[in-house]
């Protein structure tokens, strides 16, 4: 008999794999992005089923909220026309499929029910007072303070790098240069041009 949990798991994991396929195979980059967002949504559900609330929501916020928006933004900005002829799959697609199938099978052998059956791992059980966020927070700033600091460094790198790479320099900005304004003088701003006087004989 299938309980709700099982049903939910299979529904969402099926959807997850389908949308993963969608990311790979869809014709347009925009739909790929959408499929990826769907992937993340399904994962969030699955993680919530695991009682990993904090990460599930973080995934939603960080990925769907920020990263995928960035992707979408870039896709829209570049707006690349895909040549229809190139949309075909590669010649060696069947070969890759065999490779992938083999890999999944072998991983199944190592990870499947033989290795991690319920008998061996037990059911997912937490005490009533389990608080996922607290559990994470308890070690995040104690044991893992060094990686946390380093992650700050990574974010700094991302910021510096992204700015250094894409910032096109000041020549495109229109800024007020106060010293320059104050230094303005008649001599270098005003040009007196001598011209022949207007013809007066028109009257």
């Amino acid at each position: 008999m299938i309980d709700v949990q099982t049903l939910t798991f299979f529904a969402f994991s099926g959807l997850l794999l389908l949308s993963a396929g969608g990311v790979v195979f869809s014709r347009h980059a925009v739909s790929s992005v959408m499929f990826l967002i769907l992937c993340f949504l399904c994962s969030t559900v699955l993680w919530l089923m695991l009682h990993a609330e904090f990460l599930g929501l973080a995934l939603l916020f960080v990925y769907v909220g920020a990263v995928m928006t960035l992707f979408l933004f870039v896709v829209m900005m570049l707006n690349v026309k895909i040549d229809a002829t190139k949309a075909r799959l590669l010649k060696y697609f069947p070969f890759v499929l065999v490779l992938g199938g083999g890999l999944v099978t072998m991983l199944w052998l190592a990870l499947g029910p033989d290795a991690f059956s319920i008998k061996k791992t037990g059911v997912l059980a937490f005490s009533e007072h389990y608080n996922n966020t607290r559990a994470i927070g308890e070690v995040m700033y104690t044991q893992f303070v060094i990686p946390l600091e380093l992650t700050a460094g990574i974010l700094l790198v991302a910021m510096v790098a992204a700015i250094a790479l894409t910032f096109r320099g000041s020549q495109q900005r229109r800024v007020q240069d106060t010293p320059k304004q104050l230094m303005a003088s008649k001599a270098n701003n005003l040009r007196i041009v001598s011209m022949a006087s207007e013809h007066e004989g028109g009257e």
């Binding site: 060696y92 890759v96 991983l107």
Partner: peptide, 20 residues
């Protein structure tokens, strides 16, 4: 790039198969 990735995949699958 996809050829480079393919070589990696090939290597990976070959080694995994070998160990299996």
């Amino acid at each position: 790039l996809y050829h480079y990735a393919l070589i990696m995949l090939l290597g990976l699958v070959a080694m995994v198969t070998w160990f299996m």
